[in-house]
Design a protein around this nucleic acid. Structure first.
Lengths: 185, 185
DNA sequence: AGTGTCGATGTCAGTCACTGTCATCCTCGG
DNA sequence: CCGAGGATGACAGTGACTGACATCGACACT
């Protein structure tokens, strides 16, 4: 690996979060981030496909965990329940970092471009969930609809969790939202 | 309005769809579109906030129609049903333009940036729907969840409708998807 | 030690999306 | 005939992102 300072990627992520918090996303250039991280702008773009992506580095892991949890769920669990098991497992990756999640959400919230990217990541979660459901034999369009519903539950629960002063358990937020969804007519 | 050729906006939209179809989105510069439309690049950006936006000019109208349909729906209709009335009404704006919708979708489908923008527009539809539901007295998080569900139904139904060789009625696709959603466990 | 491969980085030049600014030009009302 | 206003053209500038090429240092192999 490194003959230079190690963990260049991590340094860039931290630098970016700091700078976005200090001066805002748009006022921060890729060069600023690179400079604070002690690398070149070119290196920044070798690690992240775009300037936004630096805030979404862990979404791949969430997709994977979600998928695996659904695969591991009891075979007789109905589609929506299985999908919810998945998003709960994915949410667990954030559960103990409420502070960090809140700071990050505050940055994303105020920037349309970043919200757009977040939606793309959520769409990726929908795809992962639907794939995993199909792998258990759930047919279309039930798989996609269950996946969309579960991720919607996640979104609503996450938004509530993040904005809460006294952080409840994310899993509880998800369960509560799921209960409301099931009660819908 | 115009002392120059009228309908500059419409010309740019048509030019853009043509060029995106001919050479692809990324290979088409804003200058190309402007040139074919007989205007300046600067003028293009006066009409559209971004290069992508030229493909999403009618989404504002869909949001409005969706909102109005929900307002006009019977007061005793439960949240999800009311939301579905909304997206059906919104879908009606596209119902008789299957060919155009299909061509547009083909362009969007293959470009991550355009899919991202589409997701933002769908998120706008969720917001419009949730707002309209709250205006009828539906509380949170039920309003958001019903809105998300209805738009998910719309997405799934629209995707099926667009990819169908022999175009069925979009409203029927939506109803069918809604039935599957309600049968979920 | 000597050497060569290889992955990660630096350097540089270039394209294109997008913006601010200012002059210009119809179109309409007076 | 004249002035205000809206839309456009012309132009310069910033910043995101990319491609090509040189470099450096760890590691393996000899």
């Amino acid at each position: 690996m490194g003959r230079w300072e190690p963990d260049a990627r991590g340094r860039m992520i931290r630098a970016a979060v700091e700078l976005f918090g200090e001066r805002g996303f748009e006022q921060t250039t890729a060069g600023h981030i690179a400079e604070r991280a002690g690398v070149t702008e070119r290196t920044f773009f070798r690690h992240f496909t775009d300037k936004r992506e630096v805030l979404f580095d862990s979404t791949g892991a969430m997709d994977r965990v979600t998928r695996e949890a659904i695969e591991a769920a009891p075979a007789d669990l109905p589609p929506l329940s299985a999908a919810l098991v998945g998003v709960v497992a994915g949410g667990d990756l954030l559960a103990d970092r409420h502070e960090h999640a809140a700071r990050r959400s505050r940055i994303i919230e105020v920037n349309p471009g970043l919200r757009e990217r977040e939606l793309l990541k959520l769409a990726g979660m929908v795809t992962a969930t639907a794939d995993a459901l199909r792998a258990r034999g759930v047919a279309e369009p039930a798989a996609s609809l269950a996946a969309h519903s579960a991720v919607a539950v996640f979104q609503v629960a996450f938004a509530h969790w993040v904005s809460a002063e006294d952080p409840p358990a994310l899993a509880d937020c998800i369960e509560a939202a799921a209960a409301v969804l099931r009660a819908l007519e």
